[in-house]
């Protein structure tokens, strides 16, 4: 139990009448890197959005770091502060400079003194190699730089888990690499990560396990090597044959 940082049991979710997630069971141990892949519309994004309750699930339970996510979880904000998230569309705050984007949440949510927050932000911006852009506004940066800033912003909250929702899907091929590099470095530093992505190269390089989802169900879950070498289900084989 102690090292299982995320526990999802029998989780179901509907959008209206449409069931997007069916009986999801998933356990993630501390410091594990998990890649979630699958065709679009298979519920990958919804799954990880459920983990920090950007979406509500209707049945089953999700336990994050020992706290169950329920309708009346008063400290949902505390859980969210411990779960960083990076989005496909970056979602930086366009009215704030890069530095302010990174310090906003530490200052206002964690009540960190401004000076400390700025030092921390610069540290993380250096890790993703955009410290020199700190005083620019998001609109002045390229997509890759924006996404790296988004990663730094999430890291500034010093989260225990990082969720990535197709972080490279909205980027030019040239910029994908710089973002993936930042993610690889993060993985090597020992962060617990759940990554929804189509970048199979990234999966092979850093993932401990790969999950394949289709039609709202987890079709296959296996160690990375095992997953790519001999996938068990036919659906996975078909998917891999198309994507590789």
């Amino acid at each position: 139990m102690s090292d299982k940082i995320i526990q999802i049991t029998e989780m179901n979710k509907w959008f209206g009448d449409f069931q997007v997630l069916k009986d999801i069971n998933l356990e993630v141990e501390k410091n594990k890197k998990i890649v979630v892949c699958g065709p679009s519309g298979s519920g990958k994004s919804t799954l990880i959005r459920c983990i920090n309750r950007l979406e509500e699930h209707q049945k089953g339970s999700i336990i994050v770091d020992g706290n169950e996510l329920t309708e009346d979880t008063k400290d949902i904000e505390k859980i969210r502060a411990e779960v960083g998230m990076v989005f496909q569309q970056f979602n930086l705050f366009p009215h704030l400079s890069i530095l302010d984007n990174c310090t906003l949440a530490p200052i206002w949510v964690k009540k960190m003194p401004k000076k400390d927050a700025e030092e921390l932000a610069i540290q993380h911006l250096e890790k993703v190699q955009i410290a020199d852009q700190a005083n620019k506004y998001p609109g002045q940066l390229s997509g890759g730089q924006q996404q790296r800033c988004a990663i730094a912003r999430a890291l500034c909250m010093e989260p225990k888990i990082m969720l990535f929702d197709e972080p490279t899907s909205a980027l030019d091929p040239e910029m994908i690499k710089e973002v993936l590099d930042a993610m690889v470095n993060l993985a090597k530093a020992g962060m617990t990560m759940i990554v929804v992505t189509h970048e199979m190269g990234f999966a092979k390089e850093v993932a401990d396990e790969v999950i394949f989802m289709d039609e709202g169900m987890i079709v296959e879950r296996a160690e990375t090597k095992e997953f790519f070498a001999n996938p068990k289900s036919d659906r996975t084989k078909l998917f891999l044959s198309q994507i590789l």
Binding site: R80, F93, R153
Partner: peptide, 8 residues
């Protein structure tokens, strides 16, 4: 989403 995910 971004604001919420930062714990606000």
């Amino acid at each position: 989403d971004a604001a919420k995910s930062l714990g606000m």
